[in-house]
């Protein structure tokens, strides 16, 4: 299944994932909106083109590992996993509910296919580096990759830079970090809260191969991942510039939507915008 969608189909998949995200968040009445919407294209690219994985056998030893370090954006992870076939799409509506496998922040022991528990920020890259170290130096798994999805706000965490030094020292070429560079965090814009620039230069100086792409362009993301896999003497980071709230105009660029779910009115409007590509096409569902 994965790896066989055309670019048009991948764009449609990202749109479907966005609609799932809106419905999940409306139903859950809590959770984060802007980040997951902005990351939908990256996740469509990952699960339907980039990753080696088997949704019917989530523990397959030969799989690539994807760690979602900024765990609060997990609606995009869950929606993509459901669409990829890890679990029924209907289960998405249990997000954040009592007894659900879809916990408010992802938990490895609850849902097969979730590689690690996350939520507390800044811990994904070092776990990914630990996995990559084993693949590179101990078990010798030459054609396996560890992808670590991070937010930009979480780069405030010191643990991230400890991991950056570590992966740089050991030249963990099999680590590919993807930063969702959407410029927002809870208290405002990243450059107001705690400036990250020169972000490109920071990673380079830690020994990383750095690419910057339009993170809302699926083809660019797929190409950058391929480029990263061709770098064999240093870890790679892809700074993916995205629009927070992408696809829903009244959420785009607005940091207030970082940690807020849509109410039913807002969800209805958001779904209309997504189904009609903001009025460009008519939708049979209207």
């Amino acid at each position: 299944m994965s790896g066989q969608l055309s670019l048009v189909q991948l764009d449609e998949m990202a749109n479907t994932i966005r609609q799932d995200i809106i419905r999940m968040l409306e139903h859950a009445e809590s959770g984060h909106s802007a980040g997951p919407l902005g990351m939908a294209d990256i996740f469509a690219a990952l699960y339907f083109s980039i990753l080696k994985h088997d949704p019917k056998n989530p523990d397959w030893d030969g799989r690539d590992r994807l760690l979602l370090s900024n765990g609060h954006t997990n609606p995009v992870l869950y929606a993509t996993m459901a669409r990829a076939g890890y679990f029924p799409v209907e289960e998405l509506m249990t997000l954040r509910r009592f007894g659900s496998r879809l916990q408010g922040h992802p938990e490895r022991t609850k849902l097969p296919g979730v590689e690690t528990t996350s939520g507390p920020l800044g811990e994904g890259l070092s776990q990914g580096a630990g996995m990559a170290y084993v693949m590179k130096y101990i078990d010798e798994r030459p054609n396996q990759w560890v992808y670590v999805m991070m937010g930009d706000g979480e780069l405030n965490e010191g643990n991230v830079w400890e991991a950056a030094m570590f992966a740089g020292k050991y030249k963990l070429h099999n680590v590919i970090a993807i930063i969702d560079r959407n410029n927002i965090q809870i208290d405002g814009s990243t450059e107001d809260v705690m400036p990250l620039e020169d972000l490109h230069g920071k990673w380079e100086s830690f020994g990383w191969h750095v690419q910057e792409v339009d993170g809302n362009n699926i083809e660019s993301v797929i190409d950058a991942a391929a480029m990263a896999r061709a770098v064999t003497n240093q870890p790679s980071v892809i700074i993916a510039h995205t629009i927070p709230g992408k696809g829903v105009d009244f959420m785009e660029y607005d940091y207030r939507w970082h940690g807020m779910p849509p109410n039913s009115e807002q969800a209805k409007e958001a779904l209309r915008k997504l189904r009609t590509l903001d009025g460009k096409i008519r939708s049979e569902h209207q």
Binding site: Q127, G130, V134
Partner: peptide, 11 residues
């Protein structure tokens, strides 16, 4: 956390 990642790989 690196140790945790290594444990995830069966170490």
């Amino acid at each position: 956390t690196v140790a945790s990642g290594m444990a995830a790989m069966g170490k």
